[in-house]
């Protein structure tokens, strides 16, 4: 059983071996995402592949959660704001045991809990509804305020896509959380530079993002969103920041792991053909030797 309060606030650093394990879990997540989307016939692949390392770090190392007790009042909350990348969320929830992996092939099918965009409680572990962009951070603020009101020690994590930061509500929420000094709230911004119609800086530029977030009174960390150790360290750093919420700007490569998709906005909302999927899965499976592993003893 995971420890609840006050374990939530303890720092969680990784051994080299753990880092290697998490990297492997992330590769498995990417494989699941490719298989799920091919089976579903539609969905959004680029962001789901790009954030697999972040999801692996959160669910295998950072979040204080128990798949056997998904409604524990002091569990850490993860909120997904850019709902369209939910295949990777479903994949990681199955990976850590919130539900059976067989369910993953029901993505986007009738009567499935795995909706095309998340619906709160449709399967255990799904904490919020999203799909209309820009709403998650406000929901996360409510959960963070709830923790303070009920004197609970859980922390709230919210993932935002960079493109959705063009929504005005995001800035209402950033203003509120910064001003209220919600130090139990950590926001992860998936800075992959793409959105459905192009590169963010061509559609509606977000830069300079760090300065904007800092001006809203957030503590800002910028990390390589594919570097497990950097991610783990930044989540720990966020716990140490006392006066402000933390925004982790995770620089990621959209489509990461399937080289022909990487960096290409055209893959935002596309599904690979059977042939392309095979190519992607081969590329992912060939990574095995490239992940730096440490032998047992």
């Amino acid at each position: 059983m995971p420890q609840y309060s006050p374990a939530n606030n303890k720092f969680q650093y990784c051994t080299d071996k753990e880092i290697c394990t998490i990297e492997k879990k992330a590769v498995e997540l990417r494989e699941s995402v490719v298989e799920m989307l091919v089976e579903a016939g539609s969905g959004h692949i680029a962001g789901a592949l790009g954030t697999a390392d972040i999801f692996a770090v959160l669910y295998h190392k950072i979040l204080n959660i128990d798949p056997k007790d998904p409604h524990h009042e002091n569990r850490d909350r993860f909120i997904l704001s850019n709902g369209h990348i939910c295949p990777v969320w479903y994949a990681v929830l199955a990976q850590v045991g919130f539900f059976h992996k067989n369910k993953l092939k029901t993505l986007r099918k009738l009567d499935s809990g795995l909706q095309g965009h998340p619906r709160k409680n449709s399967v255990p572990g799904i904490e919020n509804s999203s799909g209309s962009l820009g709403q998650g951070l406000s929901q996360a603020i409510g959960l963070a305020l709830g923790a303070k009101l009920s004197e609970l020690s859980y922390r709230v994590y919210c993932m935002l896509g960079d493109g959705e930061m063009q929504e005005g509500q995001v800035w209402e929420a950033l203003m509120y959380a910064g001003n209220k000094r919600l130090n139990n709230l950590t926001c992860i911004i998936d800075r992959n530079n793409i959105q459905i119609s192009g590169y963010t800086e061509n559609v509606m530029p977000l830069e300079s993002l760090r300065e904007k977030l800092e001006a809203f009174n957030w503590h800002v960390l910028e990390v390589d969103g594919h570097n497990v150790e950097e991610l783990v360290n930044s989540f720990n750093m966020a716990k140490a920041v006392f006066e402000r919420p933390t925004a982790i700007v995770a620089h990621t490569i959209p489509g990461k792991g399937a080289d022909f998709m990487e960096y290409k906005f055209e893959w935002h909302g596309k599904v690979p053909s059977a042939k392309e999927a095979k190519k992607a899965l081969n590329a992912l499976r060939s990574l095995e030797g490239r992940i730096k592993c440490y032998d047992d003893e």
Partner: peptide
Amino acid sequence: QVGIAEQNMAGIAAGLAACGK
């Protein structure tokens, strides 16, 4: 007090309600 920000108000309300308020 959320200020003149009704969209954020609705979202925060959802979060608070999700933790039993």
